Simulated scan of single mutants.
Amino acid sequence: MVVFSRRRRRSGGLRPSYRRWSDCGCRECVSWQAKEEQRLHFVIKEAFQDESEGGQKGSIENVMFIHGFLSSSSLWVETVFPNISETAHLNLLAVDLLGFGRSPKPMDCLYRLKDHLDMVEKSVIQPFYLQSFHLVAHSMGCIIALAFAAKHPKHIKSITLIAPPYFSSDEKASFTALNTLSGKKIWPPFLFVTAILTWYEHLGRTICFILCRNHVFWEWLLRLMTRNRDIHFLLIDLTRHTHHSAWHTMHNVICGEAKLLDSYLETVKREGISVKIIHGDKDQVIPLECSFKLKEKLPHAELQIIANTDHQTVILGREKDFTRELEEFWFSSIDCKRASKVA
């Protein structure tokens, strides 16, 4: 397989700067001001297929990965990509969502679900003419994956949801999601940071001014102090966003779309899309109860509870096992589709 990264094209000419005081001014963080149309950053691992073996392009399966809040495509590039079976004919594509990682972070955007979906379509789906693919999503990315499946159900072969934030769709769904996922807690650290960004905007901007606005300096300093050029990707991802992108994504995607999830699930259920739910039994970020409720809405879904794992270790620390589980599910869903067509 071949791995390569594609960044959106940059233009030398920038519009007048409207960077907020809490936003980073590095080249990647202000790239959205370029005159050229912006696209998301993504990483591809292409399947190698020897034509002498009689392989045909149509036999290759496409898989798109969507990360969660305060994360990036590195979650998949560092865990799944290195462990995928060489014999599996799979094209893997991991994207940095709008406002995170190496993707543009426009200030004039409200980071609604529609904004995220439109950018994924424009940056990945349309350029690569993806007509059918599997979806894998973690945490907040599960909401985007379900919305995408509801919008384009004929394109989706299967959906794998890892630690999905699901709440019953009622009038208080958004408030419930906000209090559950961004409660005023000081532990674990991820929830503390999320709470600050969500509830205390000015304090959140101050933290972003110290950390996120100067993420290039902190990355350089960590490398200098540890004498290690390879800083763990989780540390880097925590600061590669702006307060504007994080705050609006939290309120408009995670909380704002909570009341619409049931309508997405109805489409997934009606279309018979294969679904696998994976959750760690020690998850302190997304309650395990969310997956049980989701299973009730999708009786045909496969639910797998991983013992002694939390929101991150449900993937990290068990990369090989996790990748094998994904592969087995992808190919079993393909077999089920073929069987249903024959029947």
Results as ranks from 00 to 15, higher is better:
residue 92 L to Y: 05
residue 275 V to S: 01
residue 143 I to G: 01
residue 175 F to G: 00
residue 261 L to H: 05
residue 159 I to A: 01
residue 33 Q to C: 03
residue 32 W to M: 03
residue 9 R to N: 13
residue 254 I to Q: 05
residue 19 R to G: 01
residue 134 H to Q: 04
residue 12 G to P: 03
residue 237 D to Q: 03
residue 186 I to S: 15
residue 103 S to D: 11
residue 311 H to Y: 08
residue 307 A to W: 00
residue 81 F to W: 07
residue 129 Y to M: 07
residue 236 I to K: 13
residue 287 P to Y: 10
residue 210 I to W: 09
residue 37 E to V: 13
residue 52 S to L: 13
residue 3 V to S: 14
residue 158 S to C: 02
residue 44 I to E: 14
residue 305 I to D: 02
residue 152 H to V: 03
residue 150 A to I: 00
residue 342 V to E: 14
residue 62 N to G: 00
residue 44 I to G: 02
residue 151 K to M: 11
residue 171 E to I: 05
residue 72 S to P: 04
residue 41 H to V: 09
residue 152 H to K: 05
residue 98 L to C: 12
residue 30 V to C: 06
residue 272 G to E: 05
residue 204 G to V: 04
residue 338 R to S: 10
residue 77 V to Q: 12
residue 22 S to N: 13
residue 31 S to T: 10
residue 115 D to M: 10
residue 103 S to W: 08
residue 217 F to M: 15
residue 2 V to T: 14
residue 169 S to T: 10
residue 121 E to D: 15
residue 32 W to Q: 04
residue 94 A to H: 03
residue 323 T to N: 05
residue 125 I to D: 02
residue 76 W to D: 10
residue 204 G to N: 03
residue 282 K to D: 10
residue 32 W to H: 15
residue 279 H to C: 12
residue 63 V to N: 03
residue 233 F to N: 09
residue 148 F to P: 01
residue 343 A to F: 12
residue 143 I to N: 02
residue 27 R to M: 13
residue 90 L to K: 04
residue 88 A to T: 05
residue 27 R to L: 15
residue 244 H to C: 11
residue 280 G to M: 08
residue 291 S to T: 09
residue 94 A to N: 07
residue 271 E to G: 00
residue 17 S to P: 01
residue 280 G to H: 05
residue 213 R to V: 04
residue 86 E to C: 10
residue 287 P to A: 09
residue 132 S to W: 00
residue 11 S to D: 15
residue 333 S to D: 05
residue 180 T to M: 08
residue 59 S to Q: 15
residue 47 A to V: 08
residue 161 L to S: 00
residue 91 N to E: 10
residue 299 P to E: 12
residue 187 W to T: 14
residue 185 K to M: 12
residue 2 V to I: 15
residue 114 K to R: 13
residue 253 V to M: 09
residue 81 F to T: 08
residue 188 P to Q: 09
residue 1 M to D: 06
residue 173 A to T: 09
residue 95 V to C: 09
residue 108 D to F: 07
residue 188 P to V: 11
residue 141 G to A: 11
residue 213 R to H: 06
residue 45 K to E: 15
residue 104 P to V: 08
residue 84 I to T: 13
residue 18 Y to A: 11
residue 168 S to I: 07
residue 173 A to L: 06
residue 309 T to W: 01
